[in-house]
Write a protein that binds this DNA or RNA. Structure first.
Ligand SMILES: [Mn+2]
Ligand SMILES: [Mn+2]
Ligand SMILES: [Zn+2]
Ligand SMILES: [Zn+2]
Lengths: 140, 140
DNA sequence: ATCTAAATGAAACTAAATTTCATTTAGATG
DNA sequence: CATCTAAATGAAATTTAGTTTCATTTAGAT
């Protein structure tokens, strides 16, 4: 029946109301969000405790339903892995986050083993600047 | 006389014993370090308080003597700006950090404005994996 | 040598995240 | 369906990184 139920079953974990709600929130929010943002998002339903949000996001990370994203403020955020590997544009003015789905870094990853004798297994790139909207009316 | 004194004068800030020691530590450690790592490094001299370390690193960042570096653990680290813009290889096994001095991303930065109408002003790339040493003896 | 605005640091505080532990519950079993 | 138990939950306590406050000290100007 419910989409979230399916997903929880597919990872072989117990289906609880809390887990369903947290997963739903992550899917609906559709951007990197902190545990507290998930908690706030669900606060009106009043059915999930903070601790459970933290724990559940950790579980989801292990089960690869979400990935952890760290921006310059150091806060742990999580986003659905529904979108594959990608990078982020983050607006320094309004904070909006835009995904860049193409990744030109993979070839770099591979050259590193030759040049540095270092085996790259993952990489994170974030680009900061100013979005279209926030540049409106500013002298170009 | 002292190298650190020169530098502090050059940024037009008061030369205090604490600032000299913190700057010296940053230069000697020559890698991204947290305020607490600087504090520990100086703990034997017993001449700098934790608060001063935090505040001084912040000052140094404003004055562009150091830059802030955030890895996956979200802890604020600082490194000398002596080395220009570069990226990091971080070993997931031993934690060692290696700089990659060439940056192939700048051209990406420029293409973003056309593709996303987003003006990139800075970017951060970190590559995680396993260094030469930590791969010793492992099946390739 | 004197003076003062700035710097320092101990202690209090904040915010994010983790741990503890008593209570509840999903879902397996009969 | 009723019973049972290991797992999940959440309030509260704790930890950790970082910030703020404020009384005291000090760099360096005069
Ligand atoms: Mn994303
Ligand atoms: Mn570096
Ligand atoms: Zn914006
Ligand atoms: Zn290593």
């Amino acid at each position: 029946m419910d989409r979230t139920n399916e997903i929880l079953k597919s990872i072989g974990e117990k289906c609880t109301e809390q887990r369903r709600l947290i997963l739903k929130a992550i899917l609906e929010l559709a951007k990197p969000v902190s545990a507290d943002e998930v908690y706030e998002y669900l606060s009106d339903t009043n059915s999930v405790g903070r601790t459970t949000v933290y724990r559940t996001l950790e579980l989801f990370e292990q089960k690869k339903l979400v990935r952890r994203v760290i921006f310059r403020d150091g806060i742990m955020r999580y986003e659905s892995t529904h979108l594959g590997h990608h990078h982020h544009l983050i607006c320094l003015s309004c904070g909006k986050v835009f995904p860049i789905e193409s990744c030109t870094i993979v070839s770099l990853d591979e050259s590193i083993i030759d040049e540095f004798d270092f085996l790259v297994t993952e990489h994170f790139l974030e680009l900061y600047g100013y979005c279209k909207n926030c540049r409106k009316g500013e002298k170009k």
